[in-house]
Design a binder for these strands. Structure first.
Length: 255
DNA sequence: TGGCATGTTGGCGA
DNA sequence: CTCGCCAACATGCC
């Protein structure tokens, strides 16, 4: 599934292509998961798209008056509809110039109407400052579970949690509150570095991308790699029901 | 072939 | 109250 960097690039590409275009029609398939009755979304008709942006793992389509949010969950996929719709198409947006559609074979993607602002900082937002990281890491939870918990920090998924923790040289099994201040600082910097670099990689390798995912450039959470850039063996272990990739270069705090 | 992969939610037990 | 773990969701992929 796409993670934060992919979603960030999708949002930029969608903005480029759709900005200023008016929505002619929006069509839902039966059984689409929404937080608001499907009928309500018809008020978007005739509204112009101002921009598409990303909040955590959600895409937000900001129209003149209202905003529509899409969470792709595991398998949701946006695509430009040119001829026949893909199987399991949940939603079709007919703009004046282009038609955008969302498919999901698992039908788990969720659509929201005027979603609430969240108090939880996005991993790349200015609100994710040092004070935030200090408070966050006061928790006794394991650091990887904390990074994955969208109620703690938004936007980080399983693959990038592993990349970030390797970049910070912190073991995913560390207890957050045992990480010393210098480690917390490294974690904050690693988060920005890994995610920003990934955005650049995705944008460069797949300009125009609005669906799917790209992660062959990941150096740790990557089934094709046996060793880290430093030459350490990459190990695998389940944590929180998710496969976790890590190396002995990462320090284990606590336990 | 049948596990595995994925995020989120909600429930359970320590 | 805090945390970790598990099942459920549904199906393409190797």
């Amino acid at each position: 599934m796409p993670e934060l960097p992919d979603l960030e690039v999708f949002s930029r590409n969608l903005t480029t292509k759709l900005k200023g275009d008016a929505l002619g029609d929006i069509v839902f398939a039966r059984g689409v998961k929404t937080d608001t009755p499907v009928k309500k979304f018809q008020v978007l008709r005739g509204q112009k798209l101002k921009k598409v942006y990303r909040e955590g793992k959600e895409l937000r389509f900001a129209f003149t008056k209202d905003t529509l949010g899409i969470h792709l969950m595991l398998h949701g996929r946006l695509y430009w509809l040119e001829e026949k719709p893909a199987a399991n198409t949940l939603l079709t947006f007919r703009f004046n110039r282009h038609t955008l559609a969302l498919s999901d074979f698992q039908r788990q993607a969720r659509i929201s109407f005027n979603p609430d602002e969240s108090d939880v900082p996005d991993a790349l937002s200015p609100a994710a400052n040092m004070q935030f990281w200090k408070t966050l890491t006061a928790s006794k939870a394991s650091i990887k579970n904390l990074l994955l918990d969208q109620k703690s920090v938004r936007g980080i998924g399983n693959a990038y949690a592993d990349e970030i923790l390797w970049e910070a040289r912190i073991s995913p099994f560390s207890i957050a509150s045992r990480i010393p201040p210098a480690g917390v600082k490294k974690l904050a910097a690693a988060t920005r570095k890994v995610l920003r670099n990934a955005i650049k990689q995705v944008a460069k390798k797949s300009p125009g991308i609005i669906g799917g995912e790209l992660r062959d450039f990941l150096v740790i959470h990557n089934a094709k790699r046996k060793t880290s850039p430093g030459g350490a063996t990459i190990r695998q272990k389940m944590a929180g029901g998710r496969k976790t990739y890590f190396t002995d270069e990462q320090e284990l705090y606590g336990k």
